[in-house]
Design a protein around this nucleic acid. Structure first.
Lengths: 206, 206
DNA sequence: GTCTATACTACGATAGAC
DNA sequence: GTCTATCGTAGTATAGAC
């Protein structure tokens, strides 16, 4: 399908170069089709950009869906269970952040966070919202001592520890003294995320 | 100074639009000078881009310097003192991430993290390295039970919780139900970062 | 549906006046 | 140092053949 090929290429090009930096000529050439196919299928450059956001949202959902489903299917009867489920979901997110295939569209999302356009709405409503809602719900049960806003912030910061694996990848690599994260590095990062999250969630006030 | 005016504008334009997306014409116009001034002062578009990285590194150093200096001047005689100092440095970083003035160049850095160029070297060596080294050193003392690599990862993830205040700003705002972070939001975010970091650093193995 | 042609605009670099 | 003027290239969009 020309349409899918264009989307696949667009994720990469828009992610690396941004909306203005990416050229429809290049995207069309890399998709082995004519530039006017973009006009035909998506109405123009902007249409392609927005369609790319939907395409990415679908991929995020595919990645995180199984973990979120498992959390949704579990009866969260105690703070301990909520903590367990949070760690499970966070590890799923960390795996996503560490997976090479997610590199392309992660760039797109991070870019959209900095200067949100209509595409961010689609990303958030299409995929991120469910992740956020799940984490917030779990944290609320794991830490009943926190009020709503404090629970939400805690969920965000747990997410931040996973997020830096992508958003600060270059710095992470430098700190670990490598240019690319190996399997041992990834295992270590996931381990520490788990331990840190457990510390935060189990730290009931004294 | 035309040079400084160009740099100031370039931070904003390159940050928002990326290297390819930003046009020297626009940057010159917004700096109220001729496009050829860029060629004269920086040798061309790429020269301006790299000079912008140095300019940003200097600003980061100005922001974080006081906190890092204080940590460097303190005698870190115990894990408790190291924890205290870590919380102090992290709060400084959080303040930076929450400050509106840092929004422009944060975009530039985050972009460089995704697709590093020579400019990232300048940013890292010029400013980020000292922050990383300080945090790693403090964490190593606060948590002597962790080996070198685990200590480094912990430092990174502490940083990640502050970093998401910038790199995931749009998502943070949505989760808190606002479009802009108010003073109360910022205070809450700093408080939770502090509490979370304290949990992580004080969590000696049982 | 997909292609080639072309129209029009904007890009970065540079030469030369002041 | 800073400006205007201009060159060659590359951008998006669109019309029309197949």
């Amino acid at each position: 399908m020309t349409q899918t090929r264009l989307l696949e290429t667009a994720v990469d090009y828009f992610g690396r170069l941004g909306f203005e930096g990416a050229s429809t000529r290049d995207i069309a050439r890399a998709s082995a089709t004519a530039m006017s196919s973009i006009t035909y299928h998506f109405g123009g450059k902007e249409g392609l950009y927005l369609a790319t956001a939907d395409y990415i949202a679908a991929q995020i959902s595919a990645w995180t869906g199984p973990f979120l489903d498992r959390a949704a299917a579990t009866d969260i009867a105690s703070p301990a269970i909520a903590t367990d489920q949070t760690l499970m979901v966070l590890d799923g997110i960390a795996q996503m952040m560490l997976s090479p295939e997610t590199e392309h569209w992660a760039r797109y999302i991070i870019r959209e966070q900095q200067t949100p356009t209509e595409a961010f709405d689609r990303l958030y409503c299409g995929a991120m919202q469910r992740i956020a809602d799940t984490l917030i719900r779990l944290v609320a049960i794991a830490r009943p001592d926190l009020d709503d806003r404090r629970g939400r912030v805690t969920a965000v910061m747990l997410f931040g520890q996973a997020m830096i694996l992508r958003s600060g990848r270059s710095a992470v690599c430098r700190v670990l003294g490598t240019t690319d994260l190996g399997d041992a590095d990834k295992a270590l990062l996931r381990e520490r995320l788990r331990v840190n999250a457990a510390s935060i969630l189990s730290d009931t006030p004294r």
